[in-house]
């Protein structure tokens, strides 16, 4: 690996990381704004134009808060927990192909940090690991509410990871690869949402559950558990949990986009087949996929917020029943259906 490739790699990591942080910050703003408007309120209005500087103000506030470590907490695990969650959430984005290729000054830069040939498995593994963070937090806080939250998080993750994993098998069967890049390329002509409508709906529900978002936000059900697993956390440790939750949302949104909504592909137009000669044309062709990807991710994030504004939280037994008795059989059915249709070359 020569110096140029290495520096490009580093630059990509830094740019993606900063974009992710900014995305998380403004996702909180978007959520408050959209929720506000759905409830016929303004949302944040005071800090900056229409509250645009609100995330920064929140960040500064959280940074300067007193960092409390509970006296009876298991100190090592207590401090470790938020970092586990955050690292898992942010590292998941590494395999997401957020664009095609950037051709500039004779260099062709693939727009993804890493093209791992088991990209999907990597994301699922990391999102499974992140539940350890929640359970650690719940356990080490030495608080009954936190423990309940942590237990709920682990039980929910086990119950919903299964149908989530099974619902994408249809996509993997159609693609024949676990690489995210291959999956995006396979959707050049037709997005998988049309070939796999049932799989899409199942994965949609499971992804909401995996982000711990309403109506599946039982680990932090504030009306029952005060704040759930992060009840004893304050200052930057709390902020890290917050950051991780929203980063997880972004990762899930990009995962849905990649798996079912065609990644960076535009419908009807094949961007990768365009080869303009001018520099500006090349730049546009390189950056257009990123914009397309961003718009799709934004739409999914809006959908998540929309869900939160609409639905109340499920009861715990309803959650378990729904996961095991509805989603799980449907996901299995989807696999069988896809297999049969594929044998007869109908997909």
């Amino acid at each position: 690996m020569d110096l140029i490739t290495l520096s490009i790699m580093l630059l990509k990591i830094i740019v993606v990381f900063i974009a992710m942080l900014l995305g998380v910050a403004y996702l909180t703003w978007l959520e408050r704004k959209v929720l506000g408007h759905m409830q016929v309120r303004y949302g944040p209005m005071r800090v900056g134009w229409h509250g645009l500087l609100q995330p920064i103000a929140d960040g500064i506030k959280l940074f300067f808060k007193e960092d409390i470590v509970v006296a009876n907490a298991n100190k090592v695990i207590y401090v470790l927990a938020p970092f586990v969650v955050t690292v898992c959430a942010f590292a998941s984005f590494a395999v997401v192909p957020f664009g095609n290729e950037l051709t500039i000054f004779g260099q062709t830069i693939p727009l993804r940090i890493a093209d791992v040939n088991i990209g999907i498995l990597y994301i699922f593994a990391l999102s499974s690991l992140s539940v350890y963070g929640l359970t650690f937090a719940g356990w080490s806080s030495n608080n009954k509410y936190a423990l309940m939250g942590g237990l709920r998080a682990s039980a929910q993750m086990i119950s919903y990871e299964l149908p989530a994993g099974l619902s994408i098998i249809g996509v993997l069967m159609l693609t024949g690869s676990l690489s995210m890049v291959e999956i995006v390329n396979a959707q050049k002509d037709l997005w998988f949402i049309i070939k796999q409508p049932l799989g899409f709906i199942l994965f949609l529900i499971c992804s909401v559950a995996e982000c711990n978002r309403t109506p599946f936000d039982l680990p932090e059900a504030e009306s029952e558990l005060v704040a759930g697993f992060h009840v004893e956390y304050s200052s930057m440790k709390f902020a890290l949990f917050f950051l991780a939750e929203y980063a997880h949302m972004i990762v899930m949104a990009s995962l849905v986009t990649t798996l079912f909504l065609g990644g960076w592909h535009l419908p009807f137009i094949d961007i990768s087949s365009l080869h303009p000669t001018t520099l500006i044309g090349q730049l546009v062709v390189s950056l257009l996929p990123i914009c397309v990807f961003g718009v799709k991710v934004f739409c999914f994030l809006f959908f998540l917020i929309w869900l939160r504004a609409t639905y109340p939280r499920l009861r715990y037994d309803q959650l378990m029943k729904f996961g095991w008795k509805v989603l799980f059989p449907l996901a299995l059915f989807n696999i069988v259906l896809t297999a049969i249709l594929q044998i007869f070359n109908l997909l």
Binding site: M38, V40, R41, T310, Y311
Partner: peptide
């Protein structure tokens, strides 16, 4: 469920484009 989604979206559009929120500044 879909009716619920329609309702919130309707309020969102109404507040964003047409009307004024009920909040008093």
């Amino acid at each position: 469920l879909l009716c619920g989604l329609r309702e919130t979206l309707w309020y969102f559009l109404k507040t964003t484009i047409l009307g004024k929120p009920i909040t008093l500044m």
